[in-house]
């Protein structure tokens, strides 16, 4: 049984991605792996662990929403919280599991804003070793 890795952070794009992933999983009979990368950005200056802890807690909360959606859809799944930033987390989990594909949402932002703020999807396309599907909002 193959797996579909989906990035979920609770944003609109993530919800669209999750819906698409569920749709594919049902058709292909795949499992879903919901991934949230909780490494905080920024270097240095300390108190990084508490920052990470805070982000992780948030990840636990939002992935719980995703859990409910996928459970309701009756698709087999699991949740992975990874201590890496978004794109790396998705890419690494997908590679480890030799996933069929990675599904992420776009934030629906302008390309410039995305480039400045570091859109996960954009970065993922460059680092991923598995196929990537980007779902528009």
């Amino acid at each position: 049984m193959s797996e579909i890795v989906v990035g979920y952070d609770g944003t609109k794009g993530a919800k669209a991605a999750l819906d698409k992933a569920v749709e594919f999983a049902k058709q292909l009979g795949d499992r879903i792996v919901i991934v949230f990368g909780y490494a905080p950005g920024g270097y240095g200056g300390g108190e990084v662990p508490t920052h990470r802890e805070a982000v992780k807690e948030m990840g636990e909360k939002v992935t719980q929403e995703a859990n409910e959606v996928v459970t309701a859809a009756g698709v087999e799944h699991e949740i992975e919280l990874v201590n890496e930033s978004g794109a790396e987390a998705l890419s690494d989990v997908a590679t480890q599991r030799n996933a069929r594909m990675i599904v992420v949402g776009s934030y629906g932002e302008s390309p410039l804003k995305g480039a400045v703020l570091g859109a996960t999807a954009y970065r993922l396309v460059h680092v991923a070793e598995r196929p990537v599907l980007v779902v528009p909002v």
Binding site: Q64, N67, T71, E76, H77, I79, E80, L81, V82
Partner: peptide, 11 residues
């Protein structure tokens, strides 16, 4: 079958 939320830990 569902595996519930089992976070793959940071460790």
């Amino acid at each position: 079958m569902e595996s519930a939320a089992v976070p793959a830990e940071a460790e």
